[in-house]
Amino acid sequence: MLLVWSLFRVSRGVSNIPGNLQSATSNIPSRKSLMYFGLLLASGVFFVFVAFTVFLPVLVIVPQKFALCFTVGCGFIIGSFFMLKGPKIQFLHMTSTERLPFTLGFIGSMVGTIYVSMVLHSYILSVFFAVIQVLALAYYCISYFPGGSTGLKFLTSSLTSSVLKCFGR
């Protein structure tokens, strides 16, 4: 009887610990959200790839096609993180005090790219906003990479040293 009572007290104490196993596993995405994340991320990468391989060489002639394709790709990539983390959590995270200027800059660069290429038909402004959008997308991806920029630097240096070893340097 004393053993049962001790186990009850221990289990009750463990469930009251902040960050217990149950709350830690509630943040793990479901298979469905992982599937949607993968589909949206793959679609976004595809559109960005098409924008750079097909429409970047003809950016001078038709900046609208590059801007539209690249912006749709960025939208899919952002949407993939909404599916992974959940819309409410991701929205609150993106509109938090420290990330709000970045979020406004990223969305502003997306809207600006579309506006100057589709409405103003300005080549120079299209390139300017597209460059801002590329930098914002790179920062967005780095900020969500596990370990942030430190993790990305470690991965990059590991890959670089592995490639250099393969070629005998």
Rank of each mutant, 00 (worst) to 15 (best):
F129A: 04
L100G: 06
L84C: 06
L84I: 04
F129S: 04
R99T: 03
I78Y: 13
I107H: 09
G75A: 13
G44R: 01
L59S: 02
L100F: 15
I89R: 15
V60S: 07
S96D: 11
E98N: 11
S43H: 06
L92N: 09
F128C: 14
G44I: 00
T103K: 15
V116F: 15
G86V: 11
V48Q: 14
C69H: 00
G73I: 02
M83P: 01
S80N: 10
F81S: 00
P87W: 14
R99L: 15
S80R: 06
V72N: 02
G44Q: 04
V119K: 11
F47K: 00
T103L: 14
R99N: 14
G44T: 01
S43V: 08
I124D: 10
V72P: 03
F55Q: 00
Q90I: 08
R99Q: 10
G108E: 08
L59Q: 01
S80V: 12
L59A: 01
F129V: 02
I107Q: 07
Q64T: 05
T103Y: 11
Q64D: 10
M118K: 08
G44M: 02
F76K: 05
F102C: 06
S126P: 02
V54M: 09
I78Q: 09
F70G: 02
V127S: 02
E98S: 14
V62Q: 08
I89E: 15
V54E: 10
L59M: 09
C69Y: 00
S109D: 13
E98P: 06
F46N: 02
R99D: 13
I114N: 05
H93W: 09
G75F: 05
F66L: 09
G86M: 13
F91G: 03
F82R: 09
T53E: 13
Q64M: 07
F82N: 04
P63A: 03
F102M: 13
T71E: 10
C74F: 07
F82A: 14
I77V: 15
H121F: 11
F106G: 14
V116C: 12
V72E: 08
L104E: 14
L56R: 04
Y123S: 04
F81I: 03
T113Y: 08
T53N: 10
G79E: 10
F128A: 15
